[in-house]
C-alpha cells in the first residue's frame, strides 16, 4: 500500500497526466460527436458507433503511461526511487498498478461521456445498453486503456527515452499492425493475433453492439478468431509478458 501511495503522489504531482487525461477525453469525445452527429436513417447511431473514437484516446493514454516512466529516467528520480525502495520489482509493479488504475478511470469517463454525448445528439437512436455486448463495448474501453497502459509502461521501462518509447508505441499502434495485413498470403493470419486487433475483438465482438447498422458501414470488425473473453485474456497476457521482461531487465541493469 505504501508503494502505491508513493507512486500516486509521484504521478499526480506533475501536470502531464492531467493534460493527457483531458486530451484523451476531448479528442475521443470530439470524434464521437462528429460520427454520431452525422448519423442518419441510412447509417443510424449505434452503441458501437459511440465508441468508434476510442483508439484516439488509447494513443494518448499510452503516451501518458510511457511518459510516467521515461520522465523518471530522464530526471533521475528513478534512481531516488530505487534508493528508497531497493526492491525494484515491487517499486515498478506499484507504478504500473497506479498508472493502470488511472487509465481505467480515464477510459471509463471517456467511454461514458462519449455515450452520453451521443444520447444528447441522437435522442431517437437506440443507444440503450441492453445486452452484454453493449456493456462490454462501452465499459470495456477503460479496461482496454488500462491494459494498453501496462504495455506502454513496459516499453517505457525498456526504452527509457521519452521520444523513443512514444514513437515506438504510436507507430506500432497506429501503423504497424495494419501494415502487416499487406504482407502477401501470411499477413492476414499474423494480423489476427496482433494485440491491438485482438483488443478490438474484445470490445466489438462480432458486431452485436452495432445492431441495426450494416457491418461494412461501421468501423471494421476485428479479424481475431477469439471470443471476446479470450480476446481480453490474450491482450492482458501480452501486456503481462511484456511487463515481466521489462521488470526483469530493470532489475539486472545499472540504474
Amino acid at each position: 500500500m505504501t508503494l502505491l501511495a508513493v507512486e500516486r503522489i509521484k504521478l499526480l504531482t506533475t501536470r502531464s497526466p492531467w493534460w493527457c487525461a483531458l486530451v484523451a477525453l476531448v479528442v475521443t469525445a470530439g470524434f464521437t460527436a462528429l460520427v454520431v452527429g452525422n448519423a442518419d436513417e441510412e447509417f443510424p447511431a449505434t452503441v458501437a458507433s459511440t465508441q468508434f473514437g476510442y483508439s484516439f484516446g488509447l494513443a494518448v493514454i499510452m503516451v501518458l503511461a510511457a511518459l510516467a516512466v521515461t520522465t523518471e529516467y530522464r530526471f533521475g528520480t528513478i534512481r531516488t526511487t530505487f534508493q528508497a525502495v531497493p526492491n525494484r520489482a515491487a517499486a515498478l509493479l506499484a507504478k504500473t498498478t497506479v498508472i493502470a488504475v488511472l487509465s481505467l478511470i480515464i477510459g471509463e469517463i471517456t467511454a461514458f461521456v462519449c455515450w452520453g454525448i451521443s444520447l444528447l445528439l441522437q435522442p431517437g437512436a437506440d443507444l440503450a445498453l441492453n445486452s452484454t455486448a453493449d456493456w462490454i463495448n462501452v465499459a470495456g474501453v477503460g479496461v482496454v486503456y488500462a491494459v494498453a497502459s501496462v504495455i506502454a509502461v513496459a516499453v517505457g521501462i525498456l526504452v527509457r527515452h521519452s521520444a523513443g518509447a512514444i514513437s515506438l508505441l504510436l507507430i506500432y499502434n497506429l501503423a504497424v499492425e495494419s501494415l502487416i495485413q499487406l504482407i502477401p498470403s501470411i499477413g492476414d493470419d499474423i494480423y489476427k493475433w496482433l494485440p491491438f486487433n485482438v483488443a478490438n475483438k474484445f470490445l466489438t465482438g462480432a458486431g452485436e453492439s452495432n445492431a441495426g447498422r450494416m457491418a461494412e458501414a461501421g468501423a471494421p470488425l476485428s479479424s481475431s478468431p477469439l471470443s471476446p473473453g479470450w480476446a481480453l485474456a490474450y491482450f492482458a497476457a501480452f501486456a503481462a509478458v511484456l511487463l515481466t521482461i521489462a521488470i526483469t531487465t530493470a532489475k539486472r541493469r545499472d540504474a
Binding site: A5, I9, T13, T14, R15, T71
Partner: peptide
C-alpha cells in the same frame, strides 16, 4: 541518506511534493 546528484528532481514538482513521496516510501 545520500545526495548523489542535486538535479535528480522532476522540474515540475514542488520541493515539498518531491520530499513527500520520498518520505512516504520509507514511512
Amino acid at each position: 541518506g545520500a545526495l548523489l546528484e542535486a538535479g535528480w528532481v522532476h522540474p515540475n514538482r514542488s520541493a515539498r511534493n518531491h520530499l513527500r513521496w520520498i518520505a512516504r516510501s520509507n514511512d
